[in-house]
Amino acid sequence: MLGNGLAALGRNGTNIIMALGQSGLMLFNAIWALPNFSKNAPLVIKQLYVVGVQSLAIILVSGLFIGMVLGLQGYTILIGYGAENSLGPMVALSLLRELGPVVTALLFAGRAGSALTAEIGLMKATEQLSSMELMAVDPLRRVIAPRFWAGFISMPILALLFSSIGIIGGHLVGVEWLGVDVGNFWSVMQAAVDFQDDVLNGVIKSLVFAFVVTWIAVFRGYSCEPTSEGISKATTQTVVHASLVVLGMDFVLTSLMFGE
């Protein structure tokens, strides 16, 4: 019994370390060499469209609603202390520091990450990656690298948009509907929000999340079993692993950035 448990622990441990090693090697091979800009820029732009532009709708709608909910909840709590003027900083800080980067990363993993995994997995299952290799074209450079860069670039942009539209949503509910003074809302917010500490730290967070989420997504696709079952499993794993890693890393980053 104890032996079995130990064996399972060891097996899982070696599996995790092997996956880490393989995925690190894959990423290294994909993005290490200096890109050939005239050839790769169009590929990255195409992927930016698929990964970034097509995720805009879900990001903007969720951002607006989350900002509105924050405005409503924050108001009902703060009014109890007569502190409804602090609604602005409450909405802005929660969005910029936490919800913007984290919820964007979670939505991105669900919307773009799963699509990346499925697409790459399907290319593998239909031997498109193999045939590329046989045409002496490295699929890591041709397929993986542009997708990775597109994810890495677009997620911070999406997070900024998420926070901005969320603050506007908070303004709509707090000011337009519940009647918080518009001047107070914005000026108290400006006094409390620091560009470097809050906005830039949020951007750094979402850069880190972008790195891990896209990495997990492309690796899961690249290493999946080339069958329909394998692809569906890999897609699920992308969403589950990426979400867990994002939430875990968020705690670490928050304690590094905002902890004393």
Partner: peptide, 19 residues
């Protein structure tokens, strides 16, 4: 290896055209 592969090619069972 990539240089050598320019001299060979393979027709896959599925065709493996880029979809």
């Amino acid at each position: 290896l990539y240089e050598a592969r320019k001299k060979m090619s393979m027709l896959f069972q599925s065709g493996a055209l880029f979809t």
